[in-house]
Design a binder for these strands. Structure first.
Length: 268
DNA sequence: TGTCAATGCTAAG
DNA sequence: TTAGCCTTGACAA
């Protein structure tokens, strides 16, 4: 489910539902029982996202959540129902509730430990305090492919498999090019595109990257059918014709993840 | 019922 | 480079 846009959304939503009022915190599954007991009954003060990391602040205690590949939140209003499945964390008040399942990380951190997490993350295109030059410096001296670098959270925080595939497509950049062969102009365009696309993603709750002239309506084509929901150029469109040049979209395994690109449009 | 994949990451080798 | 982990849902048999 989650690239950075979802995590920023979750920060917003948790704050909206739980801020400034006592939260009942529990761990129906039991694997976070100790942490839940420590937070139970205290108000949420702040909620923050950095890349794919979510931080919920209860005074000096920070609840640090990372969803991993398939973790997710479910929100509801009114009284919370009986837990279904493996609910690691449940938060609730009289107005609503939230269940967390399958996170990679769900732990309590003190402020110093929270700072250490921030310190190992690169700039997040969704954060106003982000410094894109920090990412550029790593990119410019690396022989690793640009596709791998875009997903390295120490380089850039919040970009996942969908945004990396789509931004490279939109700029016509071959995913196999070395980071150090990316020009400063191209990098500036990558960053600007990520900022724009990811902000759109926060608003929509899904990833849409297709330009106006290539939308299903504009092209008279059927909308894409894929459980990830958004309209995209190459992500999981293996062997389907490129929406721009018609070349079949290719897939390859790169660093244990699927990489999608169009050999026709991404030759540079 | 079983198998597999998934928008992720870490530690071991 | 690989194995392992967190969990669910789609699909095959």
């Amino acid at each position: 489910m989650p690239e950075g846009h979802i995590i920023h959304r979750l920060a917003r939503e948790n704050h909206r539902v739980f801020a400034d009022r006592p939260v009942r915190v529990s761990s129906p599954q039991g694997r976070f029982a100790e942490g839940a007991a420590r937070l139970d009954g205290r108000p949420l003060d702040e909620a923050e996202a950095h890349g794919k990391h979510l931080f919920l602040g209860f005074g000096e205690d920070w609840l640090h959540i990372h969803l991993g590949l398939y973790g997710g939140f479910t929100f509801g209003s009114g009284g919370a129902p009986a837990p279904v499945g493996e609910v690691r964390l449940r938060m609730a008040n009289d107005e609503g509730w939230a269940d967390l399942r399958g996170p990679n990380t769900c732990e309590l951190l003190d402020p110093a430990a929270k700072d250490a997490v921030h310190a190992r993350l690169g700039p997040d295109p969704l954060r106003p305090d982000a410094d894109p030059d920090a990412a550029w410096r790593r990119m410019a001296r690396s022989s690793t492919t640009v596709a791998a670098l875009l997903m390295d959270q120490k380089v850039l925080a919040g970009v996942g498999n969908v945004y990396r595939a789509e931004v490279l497509f939109r700029l016509g950049i071959s995913p196999h090019r070395a980071g150090r062969d990316v020009t400063r102009t191209e990098w500036d365009a990558i960053w600007a595109d990520l900022v724009a696309l990811m902000h759109l993603g926060v608003g929509a709750g899904r990833i849409d990257t297709v330009r106006q002239e290539h939308t299903p309506e504009a092209m008279g084509r059927p909308p894409r059918v894929d459980d990830h929901g958004g309209e995209v150029y190459v992500y999981r469109r293996t062997d389907m014709p490129c929406l721009v040049c018609g070349t079949p979209v290719r897939t390859e395994s790169l660093a244990a993840r699927n990489l999608f690109w169009c050999p026709g449009c991404q030759q540079r």
